[in-house]
Design a protein around this nucleic acid. Structure first.
Length: 485
RNA sequence: GGGGCCGUAGUCUAGCCUGGCUAGGAUGCGGGGCUUGGGCCCCCGUGAUCCCGGGUUCAAAUCCCGGCGGCCCCA
């Protein structure tokens, strides 16, 4: 009866294949069949997961005074080219609309790769005074990037269908700095809420957002040991407002360019929920975002009368749980046997299962199984709602701790290149080394270990008394490297 | 940026090298029977412009060229 230990062998050793399998098996996202590279379809079950994540994102922004807006998808070339660093960073991956019907357009139209330019244009029309600031806008939209590298479902797309981009504007540099901190707090809260572990790094100069003063990034470690960027926050300084010649009146009556920040998260948040919590049987969803939180499986055995009793009991349990606010489904399908249903709902990550057979009907004691560990419990019927509520909490805590344990065990802090080379032999996770902060040294490490620089540990951490393992100069801080997606 | 592998029912796959028969199987789906405490079994049925376009040939899923798409490795 108990062949219910969870395994994560495929999850760990064959992550790409596992990921493609799970999003299809759980009917989250149909990828690879659409006749345009890098584009996929959110299926009903996946859409519901996505919707709950978006609700959370909206709540976190709204609570802190952000206002949701919706800007046009098409950005004329003239706007996109206003800020020179910005266009240089995006130029080779922009999709262009060049025709209206058969007519070639005078001004090409970009499918937005991001919206700094058209939003700044409107801000310059709307905002005239420091009294209107700070202003915090956000939108959740599709963005397009003509990726030339291999695309992957939900992780590297040409149409990013779920891009939450926030754009803020301030009357001083200090206030924009405070805003970057708020952005970091929002993302901490978002990822903590979803049980997603992360490290925060300040990206190196050569890898910051095109047009920004600097970029703070959230990264996580995938089961295969490669690192995925899951959120970024940029201080844009006055770069865009200068480019748009956008000035406001300050308290002392003078005119100056306002300061901006922008920060974003994408489909990758959902991909990460799937990746960090899943196992060889499929999804493991945090209860608060699971479309179905409890599935009741009737086990119809015996006489017709006994089958009827079992089904009625299953329905009655479902009603009670629904009244308590749980999202419940009774799987009454007659063509599937209970075992097949277990696999079905486990693949979809339903947090809790309740089995109802003749035994349960007779004794009033129910069999409850939690998805994250597959542990079984015997629970008296009247205690079921409170038991499940507590179980949700346990599951949330357990999967978060498990994910954090994995991330923390993937970080290796070293002080010499010998140790770094040893780490590179395994190529799993994140390497942290003292750094003199010169690009030259980081580039040497990138080249020798075949990694990318994630950036310096944020918040800033002194590397007291240590030397840069490359040049031997005194180290200023700690820097992170990893193989990335 | 460079290299390699691959594309056959919804899905997975055999056949391709060595061109020729009704493109075979599994799974799924529809119907029927039997069953139901961890992916039951049996019968019948259904489903493929063999990715697209061009070429070679009496004949192309198979060989050649181009495109589109997917996966992997290296920089």
């Amino acid at each position: 009866m108990v062949l219910t230990a969870i395994t994560r062998d495929r999850w760990r050793s064959n992550f790409s294949e596992w990921f493609d399998w799970v999003i299809e098996e759980a009917e989250v996202y149909d990828y690879g069949r659409y006749p345009v590279k890098g584009m996929g379809v959110w299926m009903p079950y996946g859409f519901q997961i996505r919707r709950r994540v978006l609700e959370l994102i909206r709540e976190l922004h709204d609570r802190r005074g952000h206002e949701e807006v919706l800007f046009p998808l098409l950005i004329p070339e003239t706007l996109l080219r206003k800020e020179s660093e910005h266009i240089r960073g995006f130029e080779d991956e922009v999709y262009w609309v060049t025709h209206g019907g058969l007519e070639p357009l005078d001004v090409k139209l970009a499918l937005r790769p991001t919206s700094e330019t058209n939003i700044t244009y409107y801000e310059s029309l709307w905002i005239k005074s420091y009294k209107q600031l700070p202003k915090k806008y956000y939108q959740i939209v599709s963005v397009f990037r003509y990726e030339t590298k291999a695309t992957r479902a939900m992780i590297r797309l040409r149409e990013v269908t779920t891009f939450k981009e926030a754009h803020t504007i301030h009357d001083s540099f200090e206030d924009s700095e405070r805003q970057v901190l708020e952005a970091i707090e929002i993302y901490r809260e978002l990822f903590d809420n979803l049980g997603i572990p992360y490290v925060i790094s300040r990206r190196p100069e050569w890898d910051k957002f095109a047009g920004a003063l600097y970029t703070i990034a959230f990264d996580t470690v995938m089961p295969d040991g490669r690192v995925l960027q899951i959120g970024t926050a940029h201080n844009l300084g006055q770069n865009f407002t200068r480019a748009f010649d956008f000035k406001i009146q300050l308290q002392d009556g003078s005119l100056d360019y306002p300061w901006q920040t922008s920060y974003g998260v994408s489909d990758r948040v959902i991909a990460t929920i799937i990746a960090v919590h899943g196992d060889d049987r499929g999804l493991v969803l945090p209860p608060h975002i699971a479309p179905i939180q409890v599935v009741v499986i009737p086990i119809p055995v015996g006489s017709e009368e006994e089958k009827r009793l079992v089904l009625e009991e299953a329905r009655s349990i479902s009603r009670v749980l629904e009244e308590r606010g749980f999202r419940v489904r009774v799987d009454e399908r007659e063509e599937l046997r209970p075992g097949a249903k277990y696999y079905y709902w486990e693949a979809r990550g339903v947090p809790v299962r309740v089995d109802v057979g003749l035994e349960e009907v007779k004794t009033g004691v129910l069999t409850v199984v939690r998805r994250d560990t597959l542990d079984r419990y015997k629970v008296a019927g009247e205690e079921l709602p409170s038991f499940i509520a507590k179980l949700f909490n346990d599951i949330t805590v357990n999967i978060k701790r498990r994910a954090w344990d994995y991330l923390l065990s993937s970080i290796r802090r070293v002080t010499s290149m010998d140790e770094a080379r040893e780490w590179a032999g395994e190529k799993r996770g994140i390497l942290e080394m003292p750094w003199c902060s010169r690009e030259e040294c980081a580039r040497r490490v990138e080249e020798e270990l075949e990694v990318k620089t994630l950036g310096v540990v944020w918040p800033f951490e002194e590397a007291r008394g240590l030397a840069c393992p490359i040049c031997g100069r005194p180290a200023v801080t700690w820097v992170r490297y990893a193989k990335t997606y």
